[in-house]
Design a protein around this nucleic acid. Structure first.
Length: 176
DNA sequence: TCACGGTCCAACG
DNA sequence: CGTTGGACCGTGA
């Protein structure tokens, strides 16, 4: 396993990967004492240049960066969870959002909204798998495993606007 | 099995 | 509008 760090306005990010693809991304320092998962240690420091550049552009460049092309290693997940995660990576572009229910529907499981939320809650690759772009059906923010503040900030970076009642405008909303 | 979510929506007031 | 209660479904223990 390899890893590298990169500073962002939201704290230091650490990314883990191997020859199969990306495995983990987490906020390493910053936000109230979040810890390094203990199962990750002893990796070899090695930058993945294109990914490094993409992250840098995303956080500092204010440019439309998508991570859709980067390979993921999601072997340890169940098929449904994998589907949810890969679908999110491939079909929810920059500055667009959708809901848990809509995403479930797109996978042919119209009623599995909560299950989809559960799958996203175990997203090992926030930012790269853009689970911050999935909000509640009525456009309210919804939850986020890294903390709702981070979710808000990420959407802010992408210039997704919320109205006074706290809902995203439906221009950016995708429904399947 | 079972309890638990990053939910949803119809039915209120 | 805002709130509430029940239905829903894949997971991990």
């Amino acid at each position: 396993m390899y890893f590298f760090n990169i500073g962002t306005p939201l704290g230091i990010i650490r990314v883990w990967y191997d020859d199969q693809g990306l495995q983990f991304l987490y906020f390493y320092e910053g936000e109230k004492g979040r810890k390094v998962p203990p199962f990750l240690s002893g990796g070899e420091y090695k930058i993945w240049p294109s990914l490094y550049q993409a992250l840098k552009d995303y956080f500092y460049g204010g440019r439309e960066i998508d991570f859709q092309g980067f390979p993921l290693n999601l072997d340890r997940y169940t098929p449904f969870t994998r589907e949810v995660l890969t679908f999110a990576q491939k079909h929810i572009p920059y500055r667009r959002v959708t809901s848990y229910g809509s995403l479930a529907k797109a996978l042919g499981r119209g009623k599995a909204a909560r299950a989809a939320g559960r799958a996203l809650a175990s997203n090992p690759l926030p930012v790269i798998i853009p689970c911050h772009r999935i909000v509640k059906a009525e456009g309210l923010l919804g939850g986020y495993s890294q903390g709702r503040d981070i979710k808000r900030e990420l959407l802010k970076i992408e210039k997704v606007k919320f109205n006074l009642v706290g809902r995203v405008n439906n221009e950016v909303f995708i429904s399947w």
